[in-house]
Design a protein around this nucleic acid. Sequence first.
DNA 1: CTGTTAGCGCCTTCAG
DNA 2: CTGAAGGCGCTAACAG
Lengths: 353, 353
Amino acid sequence: MPGTDEDARIPAGHRRATMADVGRLAGVSATTVSFVLNEKSGQTISEQTRQRVLDAVAALDYRPNRMARGLRTKRTATLGFVTDEIGAEPFAGATIAGAHEVAWAQGSLLIVVSATRDRRILTDVVDDLIDRRVDALIFAVVGTRRIAVPQALKGVPALLLNGYVQGGLLPSVLPDEVAGGRAAAQLVLDAGHTRLAYLTGQASLWPTRARLRGFRDAVVRAGLDPHDQVVLRGNYRADSGYELTRQLLAAGPPPTAVLCGNDRMALGAYLALKEAGLRIPEDVSVVGYDDQVDLAADVHPALSTVRMPYYQMGRWAAQQAVAGTIPTLPTRTYLPCPPVPRASVGPPPPATA
Amino acid sequence: MPGTDEDARIPAGHRRATMADVGRLAGVSATTVSFVLNEKSGQTISEQTRQRVLDAVAALDYRPNRMARGLRTKRTATLGFVTDEIGAEPFAGATIAGAHEVAWAQGSLLIVVSATRDRRILTDVVDDLIDRRVDALIFAVVGTRRIAVPQALKGVPALLLNGYVQGGLLPSVLPDEVAGGRAAAQLVLDAGHTRLAYLTGQASLWPTRARLRGFRDAVVRAGLDPHDQVVLRGNYRADSGYELTRQLLAAGPPPTAVLCGNDRMALGAYLALKEAGLRIPEDVSVVGYDDQVDLAADVHPALSTVRMPYYQMGRWAAQQAVAGTIPTLPTRTYLPCPPVPRASVGPPPPATA
DNA sequence: CTGTTAGCGCCTTCAG
DNA sequence: CTGAAGGCGCTAACAG
């Protein structure tokens, strides 16, 4: 009897075992195999045949074909995650990690698809995902902003992450940037600073305006005159922070604290400040925004900043998606951006003239 | 006749139209619908019925169920992309973008799944993907290194990106780090520098050793004594670059060029150099490695560095996967790391004592 | 040029 | 406690 045992293993790359194969080997029907594999079917299987089936499954290295299963059950245990730009942004990583963990823990697979900003591709990708019958869709955009979503999104439970649509027809999760801006300012206000500079980014971006609003809020609440605080506009790049800081220094006695629209600008500020012989935080305190990985905590001195809740947003989104609660969600849900105090903030220098 | 036309549209969230529905509406069989939809079946359909079918498809907003199709054809037009750590690393973004573009252009969907380094999860995720019958699998790891892959990878055409296995049983695409290290050194050697410092990372990492080897290679080829060049060991973080540079400056007359194991260390070097009142590149030239997005090109002065071929690796991998050429691949394929000269390298200062 | 028949691999009544 | 029958939505022979 040649090959009785050997042939039981899949001949590497050959046809995978099917449920019927398992049944045959165990001497039962495919139905029975299905019952033991799916447990809780309200069915009862004798411990003995159960074991025989399990043995056969192991022997054949059987794994159910999820396409067939999905076809039958109309559930794929799949969450689609579409980004408009997976890019190098740290954004995606944390969000995806959070969403993946929750999804996986609940028995679903998060499949990430990076589209581009190209409307056509975006639409086609969403359609494709729906054709594959994902159970729900998370649509993530990198910079918080209003977006136009593919029509097809209405054909499946969908949720927007970091983006929002006009009519509020799709629920969104967003970072609470206003509170974040306040938190950033509070970091230096609490340390006793009264003369601040704020290096902001493009006014066309929603986060820019929200953070700035938060900043002004905090300044007013602290009893300071917002008009006394200088606001310089840049573009979120490190070199822009560098330039703006140089302008600041050239303009006269520098403020005692420089708040930046993001960590990269803060990095530019660091370079300009050090070049000018100013010490951080003894002479000038600096605050960033984003708590960017490998940057904020690693520069010298470590940068005080505000953290984006990307990981939490990912978790939250996946949670709603697997729980099937998307239809019940409010239009917008804001998650907090907590302050992260580090070494770059200290008390203002004694002589401020 | 109520609702003849209205009811033809899917009642939002209701059952999606099936091929049979389309056939019924068009007055043909499902088979015919299949033929017109899949074109090139060697079949011929009268222009007239063709149009009727197409109209019905449009009217019902019909889209084929890819699970059913996959079940039948045993092809899913899906490439699986598994990472052990999607993290914040710029790595993932570029690689995925490259792979996605190629896959999509060839009619396949790249689905990215972020696993963790946890062996168990990794194995389960790969199994899951195979259960979903992906046509091929790209297994990507973030730091180039030898890895142990899930057994299941043998059940599907698979390819390693940035990682390699012991026996060479799975083909790999890797960055040519040795040549990259050489290129980095060449950047300053060509400018006339002879006294270099190399700030390296952990010796336990393969890229560290490869880059360093390339550096030494270039130094020897340039006719310099490798023992004259100081090599300091750090850990790839910005603060480590900062510390090492301070050590360098404290130890005596600094070298005229500082080569760094990566861009983040170069950033640390920038901070320390500026703090010490040294100008880049007038007093000291600096070279990084990685050409990290939002960093290398944006610091002041712009950092000369070496680019990792992540995008290209992604493209290459997807290319092989969709072309079905994985079985024919050599054990290892190296892609070049080109030098990116910028402002941080200049001629050595006249007086070097 | 078009329709019939027969599954792909699984789950789910409904009978034994 | 277990099996037979039927069908999810699609494609691929094979007939007309």
